[in-house]
Nucleic acid binder design. Structure first.
Length: 325
DNA sequence: ATGGTTTTTACTGCGTC
DNA sequence: GACGCGGTAAAAACCAT
């Protein structure tokens, strides 16, 4: 009966040296002569078979550092399993029963066995999403995932958001609040904690809950879970604005400097971090002679031009007195 | 609920292309 | 003349009390 029950592991995907070699040899082409290239893993090089051109060197060998001589040994030595993830409601550790009615050798099952497997599948599914909390979590995690990709947030943020939501669920914070609201709040908190903050506006744009509910739930969750969320650092917004506006690294560096001196002068307390960041980017672009209008900046930062004006005056004053050039 | 602070909205005048 | 920029006043939003 265990024959057809499998827990999926990543191990199946690990490739041996030979596999990598043939795979790359077929895919890549030499830029010089158009011939086939093969990867020489021993010397960490990719060389052309025909003309001997070294296409790539000092690559990272992602293969295992041990050798296995048969399948059993491979199982023995491999330390790789499926990664646990908080992004799935059961952390990816549950048992899955394949839907094909085949046994481990790929043979079809007898009709009696088939019925048995069907019953097992049914019950397995029932246990997996057993109570309301689990189902709740399942939905919320889906929601978090959706919003996170819409905002282009990295995986670790989703993980954090998942953890926060999990905790909220355990502390019975959900009754009386919408799943989506709490999920959104968790994501918002996670993004800020991870140093890739998104403004309330941006978040509520992709969420089904409005801003007011979001802020309410967010506050509540933070308070109840005793979460430490430092006030957003304006510098964290800078890289995103800079790249959205196609500005140079020089400008980005400049903007950071401005924010630094502003911090030293204590100009920024009480002001909105987003506005500060936007103003810094604008001012930096001015100083490096790159053309951006206040309007452009205000759009990508979703902040008003007036605020940018006010802030960037302060920023320039602060930088003057901090480091008189 | 209230008062103080910050941000937004709306409008105006100036200079440049 | 359109556009970018700077300024102002009043309204709105936000926050702590």
């Amino acid at each position: 009966m265990t024959d057809n029950i499998r827990t999926y592991t990543r191990e199946d995907e690990t490739t041996t040296e030979e596999e990598t070699r043939t795979e790359q040899g077929e895919k890549e082409q030499c830029p010089e002569c158009g011939g086939r290239v093969i990867s020489d893993t021993e010397h960490a090089e990719t060389v052309c078979q025909d003309c001997g051109l070294v296409v790539e060197e000092d690559e990272i060998d992602r293969g295992p550092e041990w050798r296995a001589f048969d399948a059993a040994e491979k199982d023995e030595k491999s330390r790789v399993g499926a990664p646990t993830t908080n992004m799935m409601h059961d952390q990816g550790l549950s048992t899955n029963i394949g839907w094909q009615d085949k046994d481990a050798y790929g043979r079809s099952l007898s009709s009696r066995q088939r019925q048995k497997m069907q019953r097992l599948r049914t019950w397995n599914e029932r246990f997996r999403t057993r109570d309301s909390k689990e189902r709740n979590l399942k939905q919320a995690l889906g929601e978090i995932d959706r919003m996170a990709s819409a905002l282009g947030l990295p995986e670790n943020v989703r993980e954090t958001a998942s953890v926060i939501y999990r905790r909220a669920l355990e502390e019975d914070l959900l009754p009386g609040r919408s799943i989506e609201g709490v999920a959104t709040a968790a994501l918002y908190a996670a993004a800020r904690q991870a140093g890739t903050p998104r403004s309330l506006d941006e978040i509520s744009a992709v969420s089904r809950v409005d801003k007011m509910e979001l802020t309410r739930t967010y506050r509540y969750v933070i308070r109840e879970l005793g979460l430490e969320v430092k006030p957003a650092d304006p510098e964290h917004y800078v890289p995103r604005f800079v790249s959205d506006l196609d500005l140079s690294d020089e400008t980005e560096r400049m903007a950071r400097e401005l924010l630094d001196s502003a911090r030293q002068e204590g100009v920024h307390s009480g002001k909105s971090p987003v506005g500060l960041a936007a103003a810094a980017v604008y001012a930096a672009a001015l100083l490096t002679n790159e053309k951006v209008t206040q309007n452009d900046v205000s759009e990508v930062a979703s902040i008003s031009e007036v605020t940018i004006r006010n802030r960037y005056k302060e920023l320039l004053e602060a930088s003057d007195s901090a480091a008189p050039a």
